[in-house]
């Protein structure tokens, strides 16, 4: 546990010192979302109809954009190898890094999402559900994304590659995340969607650290 906390604190401190990372992710999210009204036209009805999907897709892309930094810098300067030598299990270290990633990208996205929802004229009935769904969905995005980020360590053109690997794995979260908001907007219960998202989160929390740790070991072998 102490290793977990140490990695978490270190990554958070690094992210806060540089500062730009979280801001960049949120900025990317806002800019991407802003592009949609230009693409589909500014009619309020259409925007309200697609708002939940747009927000989820933009959040997905923004989270993906920042995946590389979970491991890449540590891999390049050899920190990862030193971490592997420590007595703490790799799974715990991975979990610490993922949590740090979520705190610096997922959390800011959740805070920025209602703002964009208002701008896209989303129905107010979906706001709370959107927040809850993102609270359940974004940690799963970080957990799954970490596998991709670890797999591409040492590869050529890693940044493009990680999106190709991770996007198909993100689809269930997108479906249920957008579905939950839509159900709430239609006046139906979003509980089922949220329960499934919770199940996905628990499943990824239990399984992905092993996969990510394996991928990291492959990279530094």
């Amino acid at each position: 546990m102490s290793g977990f906390m140490a990695v978490l604190q270190r990554d958070l401190r690094l992210a806060l010192r540089q500062g730009a990372d979280s801001v960049m992710v949120v900025a990317f999210f806002i800019v991407t979302t802003t592009l949609f009204p230009f693409g589909v036209g500014p009619e309020a009805n259409i925007l309200a109809r697609i708002a939940s999907g747009v927000i989820w897709v933009s959040a997905l892309l923004a989270a993906m954009l920042s995946l590389e930094r979970i491991f890449q810098a540590d891999f390049e300067d050899g920190t990862l190898e030193l971490l592997a030598l420590s007595p703490v299990s790799m799974e715990m270290l991975v979990l610490g890094k993922v949590l740090a990633h979520w705190l610096t990208t997922g959390l800011p996205l959740i805070i920025a999402a209602p703002l964009m929802a208002v701008m896209l004229n989303m129905d107010q009935s979906g706001f709370v559900t959107l927040m809850i769904a993102m609270l359940l969905g974004t940690p799963a995005l970080s957990l799954i994304g970490a596998i991709g980020a670890a797999l591409i360590l040492g590869a050529r053109r890693g940044g493009v590659l990680v999106s190709l690997l991770v996007l198909p794995l993100y689809i269930p979260i997108l479906i249920f995340g957008a579905g939950a908001v839509e159900a709430a907007q239609l006046g139906m219960s979003a509980t089922e969607h949220l329960q499934i998202m919770g199940a996905i989160l628990l499943l990824t929390l239990a399984a992905t650290p092993f996969a990510t740790a394996h991928a990291v070991r492959l990279a530094i072998e």
Binding site: I147, L151, I152, A155, L161, L165, L169, A215, L218
Partner: peptide, 30 residues
């Protein structure tokens, strides 16, 4: 898409053996 991701990953490394191992992990996750 999963196939294309696998093919891209496997061919992205200078050492083909490293690529194959990463690919095997991805195939299993997929």
């Amino acid at each position: 898409f999963l196939y294309l991701g696998y093919i891209a990953l496997v061919n992205a490394f200078d050492d083909p053996e490293r690529g194959s191992k990463a690919g095997s992990a991805l195939a299993l996750i997929g």
